[in-house]
Nucleic acid binder design. Structure first.
Lengths: 162, 162
DNA sequence: AAATGTTCCGTTATACTATAACAAACCAAA
DNA sequence: TTTGGTTTGTTATAGTATAACGGAACATTT
């Protein structure tokens, strides 16, 4: 569950996180022959700049500032693309989007969402997902995609409330 | 995982399901000193009459037919109440609501949602949830609530597509 | 370089989901 | 029967997401 450890550390160098994520995205898209256009790249960067999941409409003003058209379809198209490429995930409980810390690798991630600071962290959930798929198949149900989202209290907020 | 077995059986007596659920709801509310008003009762019945998760706006016309006011707040209030009482669950991936087959008991349920027929079934996920809570606590995260939703193909649809 | 087909973007409109706020009706208990 | 709390009616609006269509940009072939 190593992927989750970084984001709960409040003092890490997040700019480096972002740069690394952007580099990874660029090389992934190149390898797949997919076009990471300026809009898509900007949207990805904006999503990454926030540890908190970002709503689509929170992204629009920044697009406008950067001189792009900023109607909803623009940002939703970019987000759709980024999701298809596994670079961004949608958190259904929040109607919001967050960068994927390990795109490329097949991701079995769940989201740990803090109710107090809204931080969300992706954690590995391979074992739990396997368990669920297995249980589902006993009912004759074939699993194609899982969404595991956990609400609770992150270590930083717990500390500060004590 | 017995709770899941019924709904994937296409030929069960669903009227009986509904009646049982309504009886259970009535006695639960009575025991808790909560008021299962006509509107709330009707909304619960409507949700139960569908094996497919029902959107709030799909419920409104039926409320109107029954002579009630049918503005959105009416149905959302009823759904809020029913959720608080554990009689109904919201499925975040679908923005839709479905009756809980075992209210009262502490529910650790995940939803198996068929992409083809939209049927959704609540299945026990106690073990998976325990696993996730445990993993989360290793990151210092305290779990308060989990949402596990699975997309896939139900046994009926699988059969018909072969 | 021109033609062609495809992908991406701009734009307008609209659908879908959910809540705020306040007044009126209802109910239960003193 | 007054009082206080809960539920409902009503209007308005906030928030989330997509349809549809034309035009621009790009890649590929000729």
């Amino acid at each position: 569950m190593a992927s989750g450890t970084i984001a709960f550390e409040s003092h890490h160098d997040h700019n480096q996180c972002i740069e690394q994520a952007m580099d990874e995205a660029r090389s992934l898209c190149k390898a797949r022959n997919q076009r990471l256009t300026p809009i898509r790249e900007l949207v990805l960067k904006l999503v990454w700049q926030s540890h908190k999941p970002l709503g689509a409409y929170e992204i629009l003003p920044a697009l406008a500032e950067a001189g792009f058209n900023s109607a909803p379809p623009t940002v939703y198209r970019a987000l759709d693309f980024l999701q298809e490429q596994g670079l961004v995930h949608r958190i259904a409980l929040l109607n919001a989007f967050i960068g994927c810390p390990h795109p490329g690798k097949s991701h079995h991630g769940c989201f740990l969402i803090c109710r107090h600071c809204n931080t969300a962290v992706e954690a590995d959930s391979r074992d739990a997902e396997a368990l669920i798929s297995q249980q589902a198949s006993k009912l004759g149900f074939t699993t194609e995609q899982q969404s595991i989202e956990v609400l609770g209290c992150c270590p930083n907020c717990r500390e500060h409330s004590e």
